[in-house]
Simulated scan of single mutants.
Amino acid sequence: MISKNIAILGGGNLGASIAKGLVKSGLLQASQITVTNLELHMIQPLQDEIGVNITTNNIEAINNAEIVIVAVKPTVAHALLADIKPALQKDKKVLISVISGVKLQDLENVLEDVPVIRAMPNTAIAIQESITALSFNEKGLAYKDEVVEIFDQLGTTMIIPESKMPAATVLASCGIAFALRFMRAASQGGIEIGLSSKESLEVAAQIMKGASKLIIENGTHPEPEIDKVTTPLGVTIKSLNKMEHEGFSSSLVQGVVSGHKKILETES
């Protein structure tokens, strides 16, 4: 466990997922976490379900914390950062930003000498299965071990130069949606060939879990694992070739690349 308190400014999907993951991990007690939202009823379920503190007052939350996670939308980020700057500077708080498209330099321009870290997790952080990309400003590096310890309890971490953060955002954060869309499509195919909706979704979810664990635990590349089930004249290769003919891999690659371009446009 860590002894510091954490304030999460912005109790939307990602902010709420971080709070849930922190409590589930046992790294902090629920009483050490405060989540904010302008509409208290939106985060009331967090207090009811996992016991964290909730408030509409960002400054109050910051004053009761040593680490501040900002999880608001990019459109309101600048105004919020300017508003909380004095509270952050007052007691040398550490700020972790999970705001998509807002660079370290943008944060520094507003916050000046505050230690800043950019983190890009995904919503699987709620069940401690996120991959979180981290980038640090110079002052933030002093807190690297502490921040890595936090996010390692919520899945795995990857420290990268900030120049790679747009790519990490698309693949690590948006990638959850890509994987879930594959699951949905596979499940729909299963229904068409005779499985019930429940059966088909259960199979699709488990094959994704199994495939992921094969790569993670064996440290292999997908192709050798694919080769193990693609026998000559078999069903698997017939199905794979049909998918490739219809653009399966190409469409996924282009989707990732398209998302990357969108982020670069946002950051420019």
Rank of each mutant, 00 (worst) to 15 (best):
M158K: 11
L46G: 08
T157A: 05
V114M: 00
A119V: 08
E223L: 10
I160T: 11
F248W: 00
T231M: 09
A82P: 01
E246A: 13
G15Y: 02
K228R: 10
A82V: 09
L38P: 01
G190I: 07
A204T: 06
T169Q: 05
Q206T: 12
I207D: 07
K228L: 11
D145T: 15
I125G: 06
L88W: 01
N57F: 04
A82T: 13
V147S: 06
S239E: 11
I54T: 06
R118M: 08
I99S: 04
L141K: 15
L95H: 00
D152V: 06
V253T: 14
V257L: 13
I6K: 04
L180D: 10
A142L: 09
A30P: 03
P222Y: 07
P115Q: 05
T230K: 13
N37Y: 03
E246D: 12
Q105P: 00
N53G: 06
N218Y: 04
D91N: 14
L111Q: 01
N37D: 12
R118V: 11
G194F: 01
L240N: 05
L264N: 14
L81I: 04
T266A: 15
V116G: 01
A185G: 14
E192S: 13
F182S: 08
A168R: 03
G101K: 04
A19I: 04
K24N: 15
V229N: 07
K261V: 06
V110R: 02
E146T: 15
T55G: 08
K24D: 14
V257P: 00
A186K: 05
A65K: 03
K238Q: 10
I6M: 06
L180W: 00
K73D: 04
E146Y: 00
T55L: 08
H245P: 00
E217Q: 13
L107A: 08
E49R: 13
S251W: 00
D106I: 08
E60F: 03
S163K: 15
Q153N: 15
G21E: 05
P45Q: 11
E202Q: 15
K238W: 00
